[in-house]
Amino acid sequence: MMTLEEKQQDVIEEFSLFEDWMEKYEHLIELGKDLPLIDPEKKTEDRLIQGCQSQVWLESGISDGKMQFTADSDAIITKGIISLLIRVLNQESPESVAKADLHFIREIGLHDHLSPTRSNGLLSMIKRMKMEALRQI
């Protein structure tokens, strides 16, 4: 099992392989396609994250003291981004999710390359994941 920090390093390394931003986006799109879907009947208003240009639904639960997130979006790039968040935060204790410093976002350049509306979306996703973890504490 990797620690949260090791998972972040893993993502950073993965993205360092790409020469330019188009390749990074191609990778994000692939990741988005691999993210499991959420059942349509679970795409309810209370699972919808506000503040994104595309729609994002997030489901969370806890098993054996570890957070389990699933998410879906109607936009594939958004799905790619959220799949990275899930990869880093899944299987972590609610406490470590709540206090996680997700520096990988900055380091792979997602922060710079997402426009304000979109990075608000990204921030809303992170905030929501942390809120759901806090509810489990």
Binding site: W21, M22, Y25, S54, A75, I76, T78, R118
Partner: peptide, 21 residues
């Protein structure tokens, strides 16, 4: 089959400014 937000993002990366939404 393509969300406008995705198209807008990839267009932007290529220096093309459009509005989506």
């Amino acid at each position: 089959g393509i969300h406008p937000f995705d198209l807008g993002t990839i267009l932007d990366q290529q220096g093309v400014a459009v509005r989506t939404g």
